[in-house]
Computed example of a mutant assay.
Amino acid sequence: MKQLFKPILAGATLRDRMRACAGGIIGIALTSLLAWLLLDDWASAPMIVAPMGASAVLVFAIPASPLAQPWPVIGGNTISALVGVFFAQTVTSPHLAAGLAVGFAILLMSLARCLHPPGGAAALTAVIGGPIVASAGYSFAFLPIAMNAVCLVLVGIAYHFLSGHSYPHRPQAFMGQRISERDLAPPHEEDISAALADLGETFDIGPEDLELIIRRVDFHAAQRREAAR
Score class of each variant (00 low, 15 high):
Leu38Pro: 03
Ser110Ala: 13
Thr92Trp: 08
Phe87Asp: 01
Gly119Ser: 07
Leu124Val: 05
Ile157Gln: 03
Leu67Val: 08
Leu30His: 12
Leu33Pro: 09
Phe140Ile: 10
Gly27Asn: 05
Leu14Met: 13
Lys2Pro: 09
Val133Thr: 00
Ile192Cys: 07
Met1Gly: 14
Leu96Asp: 10
Ala136Val: 03
Gly120Thr: 04
Val153Lys: 05
Phe219Glu: 08
Met52Tyr: 00
Val59Ile: 08
Leu212His: 06
Phe142Gln: 00
Leu196Phe: 03
Pro186Gln: 10
Ala194Tyr: 09
Ile145Ala: 01
Pro7Glu: 05
Leu33Cys: 15
Thr125Val: 11
Leu184Trp: 10
Gln223Val: 14
Ala141Met: 04
Arg216Thr: 13
Leu210Pro: 06
Ile79Trp: 11
Cys114Leu: 07
Ala158Asp: 03
Lys6Cys: 11
Val150Leu: 12
Val73Ser: 02
Lys2Glu: 12
Leu58Phe: 11
Arg19Asn: 09
Val49Ile: 13
Ile214Thr: 10
Ile214Met: 10
Leu115Phe: 06
Phe203Asn: 10
Gly176Pro: 03
Leu111Ser: 01
Asp16Lys: 14
Ala194Cys: 06
Glu208Pro: 02
Phe5Ser: 12
Ser80Gln: 08
Phe87Ser: 02
Val73Thr: 09
Trp42Tyr: 15
Ala12Val: 07
Ile79Phe: 11
Leu210Asp: 09
Val153Gln: 01
Ala221His: 15
Ser32Ala: 15
Arg225Lys: 08
Ile74Val: 13
Pro131Trp: 00
Leu152Ser: 06
